[in-house]
Amino acid sequence: MTQYAEVIGDPIRQSKSPVIHGFWIEKLGLDAEYRAALVPEGGLGEYLASRRGDNDWCGCNVTMPHKQAIIPLLDRLEPLAKRIGAVNTVVKAPDGKLVGRNTDVAGFLEPLAERLREQHYFRMGRVLGTGGAARAIVAGLVKEGFTLVLAGRNPDKARALLEELAPGGEHHAAPLDHFASATDYDFDDREGCCDLVVNASPLGMRGQQPLTFHWSHAPPGSIAYDIVTDPVDTAFLKSARAAGFETIDGLAMLIGQAAAAFTHFFGVAPPRGDDGELRERLLA
């Protein structure tokens, strides 16, 4: 019998997860597979019912639009997924129960790890988006001591998300279009600070509306981080580099969260020393 895991979502054709997991399976010589399954809205119950009885299925990654909708259909949640209110990985436990996990936090923070080991006077993140991925990013950044400005098309939703995941902090909610036009705001000295601007929304993804962000809203020395993976080099990142900012693309988070999920699925850590080769394959 060949064990397998898969990624589910709608749409799913654009997912790079099969390439990532397939690369690691190949490198490790595992008798395993990783697939993609189109699961439309309303089809989650039927999908999970079919997989519960499949002894070869060890779990799935969950992408749009299911990260929150899948929660009531699972048997239990790990504490982090429960706190975030979003699941991106489902693992079949030895007792057959379906356990919801969230590896987005670990994946998002991984490329920032070296920076976050430094001491900072102040850490601030401007996070654009209020969906399932944004929930994980907010939780991760708050855990790392960031003060946040969370922007969404519905500022009330952004405010409610902050009150839920980061109560008591000096965080702020803002309308997304606040960042679309130039500002003459004079930032104070940012030496010893850590500033992030994160696109945690699908805006800028192929087939989606563009994301408009004017880089006069970013403090000097900010890092621009876009979780979109199709295209990898988004207009958001290109404009950030043109304005002189360091950038992190969505493959960094995608590979990081996939590594944690791979270990849950197959019981072995992936070979991370081959990340350069993996990126070449993803970009081919």
Rank of each mutant, 00 (worst) to 15 (best):
G169N: 05
P231F: 01
A32S: 09
I20H: 02
G96K: 05
G9N: 05
A261H: 13
V87T: 10
P219S: 10
A252T: 11
L278N: 07
V91W: 14
V87K: 07
P271C: 10
A151C: 14
G107D: 11
A160I: 08
S17T: 10
M64S: 14
D189A: 13
K82F: 00
K27D: 07
M253N: 12
G204E: 04
G53H: 08
F179Q: 07
A49I: 05
H178R: 15
A200I: 13
A106Q: 14
R51T: 11
R281G: 09
E114M: 05
I84F: 13
L196P: 08
V99H: 04
G125I: 00
P79H: 07
N154L: 08
R123E: 03
E163P: 03
V149R: 14
G45L: 01
T263V: 09
P18E: 07
S201M: 12
R76K: 14
N55V: 13
A36E: 00
A136S: 15
F187N: 12
V39F: 02
T63I: 13
L109E: 01
A235V: 09
A158Y: 09
R190M: 15
M124A: 06
Q68C: 09
E114P: 00
M253D: 13
E280R: 15
C58M: 11
V142C: 05
L203R: 10
V228D: 04
A37P: 00
E114K: 14
T130G: 01
P79D: 10
T89F: 07
L283W: 01
H178I: 01
T130L: 02
I20C: 05
R115E: 15
V91Y: 05
H172D: 04
G96N: 06
V87C: 09
V90D: 03
E277A: 14
K67R: 13
A37W: 01
Q3F: 09
A260N: 10
F179I: 06
I20P: 03
V90S: 03
E6F: 05
K82A: 15
P220V: 04
E277C: 02
A93S: 09
I20F: 03
G129P: 02
E26C: 00
H66Q: 13
D274T: 13
T130Y: 02
R51S: 01
G125W: 00
E46Q: 14
V7D: 07
V62S: 12
D249C: 11
D177P: 00
Y34Q: 08
G9R: 06
T147V: 11
G53A: 05
K27G: 00
S17R: 06
Q68T: 15
V149S: 10
A133Y: 05
C194L: 15
V197Y: 07
I12R: 03
S239T: 12
